[in-house]
């Protein structure tokens, strides 16, 4: 399968030539495939925010290339502009970017910039509002009257309304209560399945990542040390912890159980998998103790 989004030897240096010079990205090769749900994890200052701002042409690489659907996004001004519409980026705390008088107008900002006609804009605004579960009555309200969670959903709808093929979200659940977190995650999931869009989520919640992502990319000091299925990545528990990251609580519990001599598979990372693993272990134990009893 050809990747929809790809970086080749991407490097970025901040404030080159001053005492504050900082190499944020070093020769990063990253691929995202159509329909994939990709997780990027890394601690604060690891370069993950710098990386995602390259993916839709907000930052220009110091060296290396970014390809969207096989085309270099810095080839021409128009290519950069198109890349911004093909790759939607939702920043951290996106609710602080709302500015319009009504929710409807704010969501339509993106589609309007794309130069779509009124009918198409209207369709997209209503559809994306529905994706994030905003009722029609909210559309005519001022975005500043809404609750924090609702504001964030308006902001996400504003990006979804551009119907990007790749949707990138930077810490979309930061600072929300558990109900808000679930809502946002299911909104993203709905968009993912309905449009078969590629989703890239940046987070440092291992639990959330373990539950949602198909593939995980770990970023540390501007490089990618691990890239693979969650099960493979979480197998590197110690290395992850030395990078200031962790593994999901379930994985840690099962590693300890294994160390204590329990016959469980330590590569689990969700509660559902944990249940399976414990049942399997009990079953195995049950048969062996039954045999013991028989002797």
């Amino acid at each position: 399968m050809t990747p929809i989004l790809q970086t080749e030897k991407l490097s970025h240096v901040y404030s080159a030539g001053t005492p504050f010079e900082h190499r944020a990205l070093v020769d990063v090769d990253l691929c995202a495939y159509p329909g994939e749900y990709l997780g990027i994890i890394g601690h604060t200052g690891s370069g993950k925010s710098t990386l995602i701002q390259h993916l839709n042409g907000l930052l220009k690489p110091t060296s290396g290339r970014v390809l969207v659907e096989g085309k270099d996004i810095w080839a021409s001004k128009e290519a950069t502009r198109q890349a911004r519409f093909r790759v939607g980026l939702v920043f951290q705390y996106p609710e602080y970017q709302l500015f319009e008088e009504t929710v409807y107008k704010d969501i339509s900002f993106g589609p309007k910039n794309m130069g779509l006609d009124e009918a198409e804009i209207d369709r997209r605004v209503r559809e994306s509002a529905a994706f994030v579960g905003l009722p029609d009555s909210v559309l005519e309200q001022s975005p500043f009257e809404l609750s924090g969670g609702q504001k964030r959903r308006v902001a996400i709808a504003g990006v979804i309304a551009m119907e990007p093929a790749v949707l990138i979200l930077d810490e979309p659940t930061a600072g929300l209560d558990p109900v808000g977190v679930e809502q946002i995650l299911s909104n993203i999931h709905d968009y993912h399945t309905a449009k078969n869009a590629t989703i890239i989520v940046v987070s440092h919640s291992m639990e959330e990542m373990a539950r949602t992502a198909h593939r995980l990319v770990v970023i540390n000091d501007g490089r990618i040390p691990f890239d693979g299925a969650p099960r493979e990545v979480f197998a590197h528990g110690e290395e992850l912890e030395s990078m200031g990251l962790g593994v999901p609580r379930m994985t840690r519990v099962f590693h300890r159980l294994k160390a204590l001599g329990a016959g469980v598979d330590p590569s689990v990372y969700t509660v559902a998998q944990a249940k399976e693993a414990i049942l399997a272990a009990l079953k195995a134990k049950g048969t062996s103790s039954d045999e013991g009893g028989a002797v």
């Binding site: 907000l58 911004r84 980026l89 920043f91 996106p94 794309m114 504003g158 551009m162």
Partner: peptide
């Protein structure tokens, strides 16, 4: 810088 980037991501020019 941040707000500018966010609006640019929505196609602001």
């Amino acid at each position: 810088d941040k707000i500018m980037s966010a609006q640019k991501a929505r196609g602001a020019d």
